[in-house]
Computed example of a mutant assay.
Amino acid sequence: MPNPLAFLAESSVAVKIAAFFLAWIIIWLPIAIPLAIALQWHPPKPLQTEQKLPLVLSLYVLAPLVLWGAAQIDNLPFSDYGITWESSFLVSLAIGLGLGLGGLVFLFGIESWLDWLDWQWENWRQIIRFLLPLLVVGLLVSIIEELVFRGFLLNQLQQAFHPWIAALSSSLIFALLHLVWEGKEALPQLPGLWLMGMVLVVARWVDGGSLGLAIGLHAGWIWGMASLDSAQLIHYKPHSPDWMIGRSGKPLAGGMSLLMLLATALALWNL
């Protein structure tokens, strides 16, 4: 029996990408609509944190199914997206996790040295109970986002464009799609999100096409930032410059985070 979706295998890159995201949303809607009602979220109202996490996770758990379908249409092994069961993958993931956490140590260490923040050391015990669940969430989000943006999307774009054009484009799409969840609040972070995407592309390149390093790096950033925020371990001083620190929970809108990302890219090239 002929595959009714076989025509997609011969379609343009743009059609394949559009079909992927459309299929993902269509499959998610039967879950998203009742969940949004239960969470009392009515678009286009901004999402609160307690509303965003269930919606995002419900969308992300469906991604492997859609990615598997895309791999079948292109007659490719799932490992082509950058995830394997080899021990080297886990080694790369661990290195990336350490590099991501190290970047945050560098970032907050410099900001402390500049006397821009105070550490709320009395809250340090609170961070312990958040560490494991936030690591699990960080890994889940990172695996899915890397599979989608540095796996499927980058692979598709590299078939039609020069690798650097594909990297620039996939990182731009990665940044712009954050507007879906955060609305105009994400606008100041778009340059930082784009640069973050580029650094994660570089991580895949230097890892020989594997996503291990990129997933670990991404998870390290999420885990570290979410843990600090949950424990309220840092507090910025009133005189600290907003344009450098990205105040109001938007670190990627600050110049220091951009410097940290550039330093990470430099470190990646020297691995």
Results as ranks from 00 to 15, higher is better:
Thr49Gln: 14
Ser257Asn: 04
Asp74Lys: 14
Ala36Ile: 01
Val201Trp: 11
Lys184Cys: 03
Glu146Asp: 11
Leu99Lys: 12
Leu101Met: 10
Leu67Thr: 01
Thr264His: 02
His218Gln: 14
Phe89Asn: 05
Ser12Lys: 02
Leu177Ile: 14
Arg125Trp: 09
Leu35Pro: 05
Leu211Pro: 08
Leu153Met: 15
Gln51Asn: 10
Arg129Ala: 12
Ala63Val: 15
Trp85Leu: 13
Phe106Glu: 04
Pro64Cys: 06
Leu179Arg: 09
Ala71Ile: 03
Arg204Leu: 02
Ala32Pro: 07
Leu193Thr: 07
Trp28Asp: 11
Pro4Asn: 00
Lys52Asp: 04
Thr264Pro: 00
Leu233Gln: 00
Ala267Ile: 15
Leu258Lys: 01
Gly246Thr: 01
Asp74Ser: 14
Lys237Tyr: 02
Gly96Asp: 09
Leu57His: 07
Ile27Arg: 00
Lys237Met: 02
Leu176Ala: 14
Leu55Cys: 13
Ala23Met: 08
Leu99Val: 09
Ala267Trp: 10
Leu213Gly: 13
Ala166Met: 02
Val56Trp: 06
Pro238Gly: 04
Leu252Ser: 12
Arg204Met: 03
Leu134Ser: 01
Val105Trp: 10
Leu154Thr: 05
Trp243His: 14
Gly197Cys: 12
Glu122Gln: 15
His178Gly: 13
Val202Phe: 01
Leu252Asn: 12
Ser210Val: 08
Phe130Leu: 03
Met256Glu: 05
Leu97Ile: 09
Glu185Met: 10
Gly192Ile: 03
Leu261Ile: 08
Gly209Ile: 00
Ile127Asp: 04
Leu59Trp: 05
Ile17Lys: 04
Leu97Lys: 10
Leu139Gly: 13
Trp181Met: 13
Tyr81Met: 07
Val180Cys: 02
Phe174Ala: 08
His239Trp: 08
Met198Cys: 10
Gln158Ile: 01
His235Arg: 15
Val148Arg: 02
Arg129Thr: 09
Glu86Arg: 11
Ala19Gly: 02
Val136Arg: 05
Ile234Asn: 06
